[in-house]
Design a protein around this nucleic acid. Structure first.
Length: 614
RNA sequence: GGGGUGCUAGCUCAAUGGCAGAGCAGCGGACUUUUAAUCCGUAGGUUCAGGGUUCGAGCCCCUGGCGCCCCA
């Protein structure tokens, strides 16, 4: 690692990514021996992830000794899986990774809730899709234009891709596959047999009469907000099985219309004969032991799966923190009905975007992990999640703050390399850059500051030869044989500039000279520009141009080139710069002039700065 | 109405009951340089309020205030 190389003219000195090796998180022995004098400073792995791993290992040891530990996520692919949902995946991922890091077998499963009902048609999709409301998500056609087989696939596929890039190892479990294959049949029958006990437990948390419409008194907006919030965390809305003909924790999809607008009118425990009627008019009696086209209601489904998979750790959104939530009720049911144990399940706070309080898939353009990875390197995105305890909210910025995020990240990397990082930082960094199963995540070999890349990309309008030339000039001590060593960060910066940076923040080099302004220049200004243009070729380097642009006003004032700046000189320099910015980019400020000039190119600079008739 | 969660420097946030800390912004300085670069230095605090437990409380308990979230 280069240590104290001199700073560059433009941008901080580039850093090379650390090469492979042991992740910078101490093992448990080191940690234990490092305690002393109550010092927090020497317990690097005692971050929130490690603490959960401690708890989970201990609990799993008690309840399922000898079996691999299971950490779980549940994702409902009912719409874009956004950065809030990503927490549902990354939280167990980080804990599972820590457990593996300690050599304890551990599996991270993601339950794809693709057998859930299709609730509503988003505004972005043709309203004709409303005929599918009530069907399993895996039976609904994908939105128009999609290459995917069905609705669930369409939203699941990009997430799977993003998770691969993020180094998240998991086993996906399609609930459609599980239910329709009959894998849960004995659990379904058990729940039906125990329906009265289940109903009684649910009733403890029901404060309203059974038939009360939950959203009755809310305004339309409130009702919509509430429904969307629930959907966002894959949560617990859904009716809990309460019906007119008695309580059943199971809901069949109709054989004819494929929707769940069904009502169970009779069930016989001995024969498992189940009779239902559907809103479509169909009515049938099926043998539940052989009928695999239906599912347990959510509040029963979830604890069933805890028991089935032996889940030891599964977080959930804060919407589960209330008394009657499915997490709380599930904890009762898993024990009372399914003979399992409730996993350790921290509530995680919402992920916010800039001013937005929280994300929901409702509003169009809620960023997904794929979109975030378009502008953030994978370790950086992981870091945003690893450095915050689940209860702390996360704010992801797609705006100017992103540059700062990158700068912080680079500064952290330098501190880690120098051995100067604080313990919590070190842990968050290690978890962001390395996983047991994926190893060290790919990093950009030569890291130039994100802001530098963005700004150079902006002024060169992304032309590869120009980019390479300018970036070499800008960071002469960095070895840049080709643009490839600057990737993937360069591509992230490019995408950020083109998709996120508002037009008024971009630098737009004038396409034609500002003739009127050029004609109106006074003699001093003309002389200054003359001096600049005359010296241009000889000074064509970052250093040379720097001396030149600062030197022109000195010359005009009759000062020697090595003069210490006086207030008068500074004012002259400043107004000279403003003049150049106006003529080159039509604003009074911009990227540092030497960089800007290099980016524009000498010929074009002459064209833009030469008064008419000269 | 019930529950959850948060309130710490101007801002964003750290701190496992043990000397309240970073980053950014600010201020001062350096680099032939007042830009959207970098480096060094520096200041900045009644930890929302009040009470309690403790040798010791930002942290634990109680009461209250304000914000956000969820449930009803």
């Amino acid at each position: 690692m280069p240590r104290e190389s001199p700073g560059t003219r433009f941008g901080r000195r580039p850093t090379r990514a650390a090469d492979g090796g042991v992740p910078p998180i101490m093992n448990r022995d080191q940690r234990t021996s490092a305690r002393g004098r109550g010092s927090v400073a020497e317990t690097p792995d005692n971050d929130w992830v490690a603490r959960f791993a401690d708890e989970v290992i201990e609990a799993a040891d008690r309840y399922r000794p000898g079996k691999p530990i299971v950490c779980a996520s549940g994702i409902s692919p009912s719409g874009p899986v956004h950065l809030g949902n990503l927490r549902e995946v990354l939280t167990p991922h980080l804990v599972a990774d820590e457990i593996r890091r300690r050599g304890v077998p551990c599996e991270h499963i993601i339950s794809w809730d693709d057998f859930d009902r299709f609730r509503r048609v988003p505004a972005t999709v043709d309203s004709s899709w409303s005929v599918h409301v009530g069907k399993p998500l895996s039976s609904v056609p994908a939105p128009p234009g999609s290459e995917h087989a069905n609705w669930a696939d369409h939203f699941r596929a990009p997430l799977i891709e993003a998770l691969a890039e993020l180094g998240v190892e998991f086993r996906g479990i399609s609930q459609t596959a599980m239910y329709t294959s009959g894998a849960y049949t004995s659990q379904v029958l058990l729940a039906m047999r125990e329906r009265q006990r289940i109903d009684a437990i649910l009733a403890e948390y029901r404060t309203r009469p059974k038939q009360a419409a939950p959203a009755q008194r809310l305004s339309a907006d409130e009702a919509a907000m509430s429904a969307l919030a629930l959907e966002g965390s894959g949560a617990a809305d859904e009716d809990d099985g309460t019906g007119i003909g008695g309580y059943y924790p199971y809901k069949p999809y109709c054989q004819v219309c494929d929707r769940d607008l069904t009502t169970i009118t009779g069930y016989d425990d001995a024969t498992t004969a189940l009779t239902y009627t559907c809103a479509c008019g169909h009515s049938a009696t099926v043998k539940l032991s052989e009928y695999h086209h239906g599912k347990l209601v959510w509040k029963v489904d979830w604890p069933m799966r805890w028991a089935y998979e032996g889940v030891a750790f599964e977080p959930s959104g804060v919407d589960h923190s209330s008394p009657g939530s499915s997490f709380v009720v599930g904890g009762r049911l898993v024990d009372a009905v399914f003979g399992g144990t409730q996993p350790i399940g921290p509530m995680y706070a919402f992920v916010g975007l800039q001013g937005m309080a929280k994300m929901s898939s409702s509003k169009g353009g809620v960023p997904t992990p794929s979109q975030a990875l378009g502008i953030m390197e994978a370790p950086l995105l992981r870091w945003l999640y690893s450095r915050k305890k689940p209860a702390q909210s996360i704010t992801v910025s797609f705006g100017q703050e992103l540059q700062r995020m990158y700068d912080e990240w680079d500064a952290l990397t330098s501190r880690v390399s120098a051995g100067a990082a604080a313990p919590a930082e070190l842990a968050a960094y290690g978890r962001a850059t390395f996983t047991v199963s994926a190893g060290r995540l790919p990093e950009t070999p030569v890291r130039l500051p994100f802001g530098t890349l963005a700004s150079v990309y902006d002024v060169t309008t992304g032309q590869p030869e120009q980019l390479l030339r300018v970036l070499r000039d800008v960071a002469p001590e960095a070895d840049i044989p080709s643009l490839d060593v600057l990737r993937p960060r360069l591509d992230r910066a490019a995408r950020w500039v083109t998709t996120e940076l508002p037009a008024e923040s971009r630098t737009q080099v004038r396409s034609v000279p500002d003739v009127a302004a050029l004609a109106g220049l006074d003699d001093t200004q003309r002389a200054a520009i003359r001096l600049l243009l005359d010296g241009l070729d000889a000074a064509w380097s970052l250093n040379g141009l720097t001396t030149l642009v600062y030197g022109v006003p000195k010359k005009l004032l009759g000062l020697p080139m090595d003069v210490k700046p006086t207030p008068e000189l500074r004012a002259a320099q400043r107004s000279f710069f403003v003049l150049l910015y106006e003529l080159l980019v039509g604003r009074d400020t911009g990227p540092r002039l030497p960089t800007l000039l290099l980016a524009i190119g000498a010929d074009r600079v002459r064209e833009l700065l030469t008064p008419p008739g000269q």
